[in-house]
Amino acid sequence: MLTPQETAEIEHELSQYERKRAACIDALKIVQRHRGWVSDEALHDIAELLEMPVDELDAVATFYNLIYRRPVGRHVVHLCDSVSCWLAGSDALAERIRERFGVRVGETDSEGRFTVLPIPCLGCCDRAPAMLVDGNLHVDLDPERLDETLERYG
């Protein structure tokens, strides 16, 4: 069941669009913001609210890389893997995360603390390498700054 809060937020988005179903991406993101990811159950609930077939909603949900259809860790780390960050050493950051936190890109560590995902260019090429942690931007990284930053996310 969607919480009243979630329902209210989704309904607020509806006014923006010509058709109800257009709000489906917003709806998925709202639920994800509250729960970390979109479960099958949540998917059904959203589909019902927006009066669209659940298969259609899942077809949309699975297309976009920022909608998670599987559980994620307490914090989601998006490590930019595009060219400018790569030129600035992003591979070393991925390696560092694996060594220090025991999690490879695309995975969640065993304690469920971090999910590390690759992300295309974050538009910070002048301050590469960059990453997002729970949506917060961190730039000018090197392995040490990476450690410091991640340690702050318990």
Binding site: S82, V83, S84, P120, C121, G123, C124, C125, D126
Partner: peptide
């Protein structure tokens, strides 16, 4: 939508 790698102008 600025996502072209190496592009950070619209931001």
């Amino acid at each position: 939508d600025e996502m072209e790698p190496g592009t950070f102008k619209d931001r």
